[in-house]
């Protein structure tokens, strides 16, 4: 009997060790690939990227208003788009996500999303009111963060691919100081979102020291601050710095947050939290970046060469 219990305990312990989140007490990054660069005419001012299951890298370039596809070795495979107002044309493409066999692109100052196939053919546009701060594409729909200049509480809105609203998740608490100044209110609602493998939603505020995690239904899992609950400095209602710049999750549901001006190394420090929101570690990228992206193979992508290059890093986890 005792042997049986002991065996079960040992099995449980082994199981716990195997399934627990990858120990992230120390994370280092090692560069494995560089795409573009100052000496090459591949990228001019890229803004966002995503990687699909075939390891193809889709990149938005705001300077030449294009959508580019690279293979896993960094070779340009195809390019589409140009500056303009027509279908498949861009003014300032800013965010790209992929879901299934589709790519979704948002533009700065323009409402709606443009839809492309994986071979960069324009398909359609999804009408979404208001400017989009960030969004996430999932099976059957898109979760959009669209701060509105109104008295409505800020919310994430899930749309279907025709632009019909499916559900709404309020993420702004009543207690959040809501300035009368509409421009400042809009700026304070600028967020970046990530969705982990469980479908939980992580929200970081760009100009407020606040990190929130919600489940799919919108129930709060945690709310954290890491810089003394500070706000960004505002001048004439416009923010002069960032608290957080971006967020993503790895294969183990750890949360990676790109920190702004209150961190020791602004735009280079990446703070890592467990999926429960516990602080694990911070590592520093070699160059400043405006965003981070972690693909399905746990490689991290970031900016290099002032936006003229992308660097891909291997994440190495270890204990101190």
């Amino acid at each position: 009997m005792i042997k049986k219990i002991l065996c079960q305990l040992i099995c449980l312990l082994i199981l716990r060790i195997l399934v627990q989140a990858e120990s992230a007490e120390k994370i280092t990054v090692g560069e494995v690939l560089k795409i573009g660069g100052i000496e090459k005419d591949l990228l001019y001012q890229w803004t966002d990227l995503c990687v699909d299951e075939r390891n193809l890298i889709y990149v938005l370039d705001a300077r030449d208003c294009s959508l580019k596809m690279f293979d896993s070795f960094g070779k340009l495979v195809k390019m589409a788009g140009r500056k303009g107002e027509g279908p498949g044309e861009f003014n300032f493409p800013i965010k790209i996500k992929s879901s299934g066999n589709r790519l979704f692109v948002s533009e700065l100052y323009r409402p709606g999303l443009k839809v492309f196939t994986k071979d960069l053919s324009y398909v359609s546009s999804i009408p979404i009111a208001g400017p989009i701060a960030d969004f996430y594409a999932k099976e059957g729909g898109i979760i959009v963060a669209a701060p509105r200049i109104s008295k409505e509480l800020a919310a994430l809105v899930e749309y279907d691919f025709e632009g019909r609203e499916k559900m709404r998740i309020n993420y702004e608490e009543d207690g959040l100081a809501d300035p009368v100044d509409q421009i400042k209110r809009f700026n304070m609602r600028m967020i970046d979102i990530a969705v982990d493998r469980r479908g939980d939603i992580i929200i970081v505020f760009e100009f407020i020291d606040r990190v929130i995690k919600l489940n799919e239904k919108g129930d709060l899992i945690f709310k954290k601050s890491f810089f003394g609950s500070r706000e960004a400095v505002f001048k004439n209602s416009l923010p002069q710095n960032h608290v957080y710049l971006d967020v993503d999750t790895d294969q183990h549901n750890n949360i990676f947050i790109l920190c702004g001006h209150y961190s020791s190394n602004p735009k280079r420090d990446v703070m890592v939290l467990s999926e429960k929101g516990d602080y694990l570690t911070t590592f520093t990228l070699p160059e400043q970046t405006h965003m981070i992206y972690i693909d399905h193979n746990n490689f991290l992508y970031a900016r290099a060469d002032e936006g003229m290059a992308i660097k891909k890093y291997r994440l190495t986890y270890g204990n101190n």
Binding site: Y44, Q45, R63, D64, C65, K83
Partner: peptide
């Protein structure tokens, strides 16, 4: 590079 990209985009 920025000028090049801008002209190409246009």
């Amino acid at each position: 590079k920025q000028i090049k990209g801008y002209l190409m985009g246009n």
